[in-house]
Write a protein that binds this DNA or RNA. Structure first.
Lengths: 152, 152
DNA sequence: CAAATCTATACTCACCTTATAGAGTAAGTA
DNA sequence: TACTTACTCTATAAGGTGAGTATAGATTTG
């Protein structure tokens, strides 16, 4: 299960992607539209900003907007920022590998072998699907590499 | 991430599947071999027993053994027993569907659409892989339906 | 300056995970 | 029968995580 927070993050990014280009959308507006607790959403957007996915303008008429084109932001990237590793086992994570303390030999671990297939399929979907392609208005699914979507 | 408990459960079942047919293996032996805390493993095996995956004999020379053939026990079934739903979103679970409170319309939810593909791929692997096939000694991967592995 | 808005950190609170403890029950065995 | 081994069940607890709230502050623009 992905966290509620990650779901909010994705919904917020989708909302920003739908907004007219270069127009800032206020936290309040997104929170209201998407039924996300406002203060919680503030934290989430701040985190996405720290990771360079969105930018913000302060003051009256301020708000958030995407910092990168919507077809260069993959679901996988967002999930890794908010929820951490996607892999089903620590010993299968690329961003935060950790050996399983109780596993004698990784190469012969049956559990690992099975879940590595799960991990592969999951990354396949999440790293190839961008915010734009989820909205169904891009070519990123067809040639994602060209758009700089993070490689698996 | 799957839970430590689920990993223990799978490892215990794999150990039972490796044991000579119809011979009971004691909790202590499995715990020792697999480096699983004994009292914790007791709980896990008991739970698997209640769900009809293993059987037990008490007394001296007692222990656990598989109740069903190893190629009829899928990874998915074990995970659902120990960790609950496999789906990445409550609104995608077949065993425990729950509408997302904050989602207006499921049919048009982009997040749901993307993760339904993840769920499908994941189930594909987990429900088609059995304890036996993980050990690499069965035909269940080739014709799983014939062996009664739970359909997706 | 005032209002709207973002920035940052700290805090709560319930629930889940990962066990551990201990008393009880059953089956074989000397 | 008494003893030993092993499974059965319930309770409990420490620690972590998830999902927010609260509070205070900093910027920008009108």
């Amino acid at each position: 299960m992905i966290s509620q927070k990650a779901k909010y993050a994705l919904r917020a990014l989708l909302a920003l992607a739908r907004a007219p280009h270069d127009s800032a959308v206020s936290i309040a507006q997104i929170a209201d539209e998407q039924s996300i607790p406002k203060k919680f959403l503030e934290q989430i957007l701040l985190e996405l900003k720290h990771h360079g996915l969105v930018e913000s303008r302060r003051g009256k008429a301020g708000g958030y907007s995407l910092f990168r084109p919507a077809d260069t932001i993959s679901f996988g990237e967002v999930l890794r920022i908010i929820d951490g590793p996607i892999a089903p086992l620590p010993c299968l994570s690329r961003m935060a590998y950790r050996r399983c303390a109780d596993c004698g030999d990784e190469a012969s671990c049956e559990v690992r072998r099975v879940f590595s297939r799960v991990a592969e399929e999951t990354r396949d979907v999440l790293d190839r699907t961008s915010i734009a392609s989820a909205l169904g208005r891009t070519l990123a699914d067809i040639a994602p590499d060209r758009y700089g979507i993070q490689a698996r």
